[in-house]
Design a protein around this nucleic acid. Structure first.
Lengths: 203, 203
DNA sequence: CAATAACTTGAGTGGGAACTCCGCTTAATA
DNA sequence: TATTAAGCGGAGTTCCCACTCAAGTTATTG
């Protein structure tokens, strides 16, 4: 349905010129780095500078700043989805689930907290749901697979679903980023959440 | 050392005129509401409008927007501290700890997520530590008391400190605010974290 | 190599928001 | 009530930043 509009549109330009593709990638990388460092309030100029292109080029590839932020977020979600899918058929389901949890924290920490911050200040997470319905759904599904398998082996409590697990991961990364914690404390935070996911201790 | 600078400064104006005090309060309330609703990117004009004063008045009381945000944050932290102190000598230490946890989520949810968002976009949490060292310390202490008592009665695991608990609460509120969760799911999130705080289930 | 469409550049535009300033108003005090 | 300094209003100033556009450059294709 979105594939093409044959009657009106030109023969579906899907391939960019070589330099354009390269630049697009550079901009995306730079945006990721800049927004991670300074938050989504960082200026588009700064992104352009870091990418080594002019501001005009940034806007050629991403028509608005919002679109740029969105692209970065979508990229991250896709990356997490890939990780989850890669772990889907691991032998040890419990270990796979844990590994994914850790990976999430890693990818989020210091690099991606701005995904939360972008609810305000411009883009809204909701919009991504609208414009890229697949991305969220696929992540949800991939996490669902990991979760179900881990629940099946008895490692993880059965009363939580993928939505809750994702929310917990978001929360755990937020906690993890909390200022003034040392490595030991961070490790303890993680184990609290994970112990919780294993279920309550019998009284 | 920060108390005053007697030689140079005027005789320490601590009492405002009645109307001024009233306006200051109104601005603070309005700022709390506005920033909670739209995030810290909301304009100072909007705060003034909501408070029913002119923009000049806002800046008279808070010399920069940053100072205004900071004041709101400090107010919230103080409120949480008060709650914690109020619960400090409850009969049931375990229940008191839980109550505080819930209260934190309540106060944070939908009203205070911007406290996280303000790491970027202007103010930094770290600055509050510098300008209001007491606020953070007192909260930390008050939580410490609740925690220690709850650990003593055996309700809460002993390997976590106040810092970790605060980080977990921050994370839990973040998770709680995650879009698209219903009441049941939110409740389950909470119980995961709390079960985790009670300790791992014996294998 | 020529032709051309795609791409890049960067100075410029417009708008929005933080902050200022000064004339007017009002609470406090005697 | 008169005096006065504290406080208030709000138009104006300044700066920043998202976004545009026309002129120049470059990949592509035959």
């Amino acid at each position: 349905m979105e594939r093409q509009t044959p009657a009106t549109a030109a023969p579906q330009r899907t391939s960019l010129r070589a330099d354009a593709r390269r630049n697009r990638e550079r901009v995306l990388d730079a945006a990721d780095a800049v927004f991670s460092e300074f938050g989504p309030a960082a200026s588009t100029e700064e992104v352009a500078r870091r990418a080594g292109v002019s501001i005009g080029t940034v806007f050629r590839h991403f028509p608005t700043k919002e679109a740029l932020i969105e692209a970065v977020v979508v990229g991250r979600l896709a990356q997490l989805t890939t990780e989850a899918e890669r772990l889907a058929d691991a032998v040890d389901a419990d270990a796979a689930f844990l590994a994914f949890f850790h990976r999430w924290i890693e990818l989020s920490a210091t690099k991606y907290e701005f995904a939360g911050a972008l609810s305000r200040s411009g883009t809204d997470v909701q919009e991504i749901r609208d414009t890229h319905p697949d991305v969220g759904r696929k992540l949800h599904e991939a996490v669902g697979v990991l979760l179900t398998r881990a629940q099946h082996t008895g490692g993880i409590r059965r009363d939580v679903g993928a939505s809750e697990v994702i929310a917990l991961m978001v929360g755990a990364s937020r906690a993890h980023e909390h200022v003034g914690l040392d490595a030991d404390q961070r490790a303890r935070l993680l184990s609290v959440t994970i112990d919780g996911l294993r279920g309550p201790r019998p009284s």
